[in-house]
Design a protein around this nucleic acid. Structure first.
Lengths: 108, 108
DNA sequence: CGGATACATCAAGAACCATTGATGAGAAGG
DNA sequence: CCTTCTCATCAATGGTTCTTGATGTATCCG
């Protein structure tokens, strides 16, 4: 018996809200580029400002958006704060999109 | 577009733009609920207005957003226009998220 | 024809989001 | 202490997006 398919989430208001927030976090070019940089391992904000040529408060804003969505976590070390990707939430998104795709392939 | 490693897309401006647009299309609750309804097979707008209790012009707006992003396709049949999910683009998103997740699991 | 139906498009306003520069908070080091 | 460094937060602004009601367009049917 099929477990609860992630696509079922689309019938539950709280899950729809959460999904919308996750996708929103990924819907901005600056944030996607941050994600790209974090694939090289955890980074402090200063690394990212250099690599992305973006102002510090701007990066802080986007990192907060990613963190609030659960896509990244932060870790303080002395003066520096390191950000890293959260694989669990990425897996969750992948599962969701995958199950929607399967549903779509079945019905369309 | 199909890169060897989808995560590589985050290094190419055109791909970042495209991904941002795809995720944006999925970042709205109304649109996610539309996607949920389309899992039941292709639907005309009138079905969706009933099912989602949303105004017609509002649905039209969101369907256009989904269509512009390539997530759905439309098919005219007499007076009706039927919308359906596009599995290919969903697969593409799944691949991308999956490869980011793998990268994250490897590095974090 | 002419009316009705299904949908798209438009225009105006509300709500939301991103950017910028300034200020604040906490840690490290002299 | 005092300063500097890293980062977060705030306030103001401009830009984008969503919603709503009105109008436009194509199709069907009598």
């Amino acid at each position: 018996m099929a477990a609860l398919l992630p696509a079922r989430m689309l019938e539950r208001p709280a899950d729809v809200t959460r999904l919308a927030r996750l996708f929103h976090a990924l819907s901005d070019e600056t944030r996607l580029r941050i994600v790209g940089k974090l694939l090289g391992g955890e980074q402090c904000v200063c690394n990212l400002t250099d690599a992305l040529a973006a102002g510090q408060s701007r990066l802080s804003f986007h990192l907060k958006t990613l963190k609030d969505a659960g896509l990244v976590s932060d870790r303080r070390e002395g003066r520096w704060v390191h950000y890293a990707l959260n694989p669990d939430v990425l897996q969750e998104i992948k599962n969701f999109v995958g199950s929607v795709r399967e549903g779509a392939a079945r019905c369309c």
